[in-house]
């Protein structure tokens, strides 16, 4: 009963006048809060809050044989679990399409931006490499789980250190001081189309009535690059809208990277 036709109409009227139900401007985020090292058993972890939305991400490492096509590279696996704790809409059971899509968006942003230098995760070419697992759990869904999950994943990687190793065995529980080989300045953000306008960081109500979204994963080093895109939602976007959206997202990404302690 959260989203009624009446409220939907009101939100659309407000958006048309560049206003939102909670008083924010269209491209304004709620307060973003990042906390690292929130669980002891993970090699790296982070909790991210955007307003009431909360996500926890954890990083675990193990040793494995490399894939045949990349014998000198470590491996990466991202998983998102919509454990029913965080919303009445999440259900126990196999991962939903939404959870799989989100995991793959995060995977692509991290992989394609070379955020992790996978070559440096190789211990013995063709035989032994590190495998990095990122597991993301939304704890409370109040909208914009996509951005919260991306930021939590990046923060957890930044928090992570290698576990101790003896030959080809991990000595779990024993951590080294060595950080993962990471590049810097990577983020992904999502812009939502609501009515004829674009907004950032929707609440659940806004998210539910938006017709389209576009997520862009970017890196900001000497130059800005785009590494991953996911267009979602049921309504198509015009070429002009896509161009505009990407520009807005790149600008916001830089702003947020400067603002939060990732």
């Amino acid at each position: 009963m959260e989203v009624t036709n009446l409220t939907k109409k009101r939100i659309e009227e407000l958006i048309a006048r560049n206003k939102r139900l909670d008083g924010r401007s269209l491209l304004e985020f709620r307060k973003i809060f990042v906390e690292k090292g929130v669980t002891k058993k993970a090699e790296g972890s982070a909790r991210v809050r955007i307003g009431n939305t909360e996500v926890i991400a954890g990083v675990k490492l193990n040793l494995t044989e490399p894939f045949q096509d990349t014998p000198d590279e470590g491996a990466l696996a991202v998983n998102v679990e919509f454990f029913p704790i965080g919303s009445e809409k999440f259900e126990p059971g196999p991962p939903s399409v939404e959870a799989v899509e989100l995991a793959r968006i995060i995977d692509r942003i991290i992989r394609e931006s070379h955020f992790i230098n996978l070559k440096k995760l190789c211990i013995k070419k063709g035989e032994l490499v590190w495998m990095v697992f990122i597991d993301v759990y939304p704890i409370n869904d109040d909208g914009n789980l996509i951005d919260a999950s991306i930021i939590a994943s990046i923060a957890a990687l930044k928090d992570a250190v290698f576990p101790a190793r003896e030959e080809d065995k991990v000595k779990y529980g024993e951590l080294t001081k060595q950080r993962l080989p990471l590049n810097d300045s990577v983020i992904g953000l999502t812009l939502y189309k609501l009515g004829q306008k674009f907004i950032f960081d929707p609440t659940t109500i806004e998210e539910e009535i938006s017709q389209a979204r576009i997520t862009v994963g970017m890196s900001y080093r000497k130059k800005e690059f785009i590494h991953a895109i996911q267009k979602g939602g049921e309504t198509p976007l015009s070429e002009e809208e896509i161009k505009e959206a990407i520009k807005i997202i790149i600008k916001k990404g830089k702003e947020i990277l400067n603002k939060i302690n990732l």
């Binding site: 669980t39 058993k41 993970a42 972890s45 926890i56 954890g58 990083v59 675990k60 193990n62 998983n79 679990e81 454990f83 126990p92 196999p94 991962p95 697992f133 597991d135 759990y137 991990v170 779990y172 529980g173």
Partner: peptide
């Protein structure tokens, strides 16, 4: 949670 144990637990019951 998958990361709550020494060796990563596969998700699911």
């Amino acid at each position: 949670a998958s990361f709550s144990v020494p060796e990563r637990k596969r998700p699911g019951p």
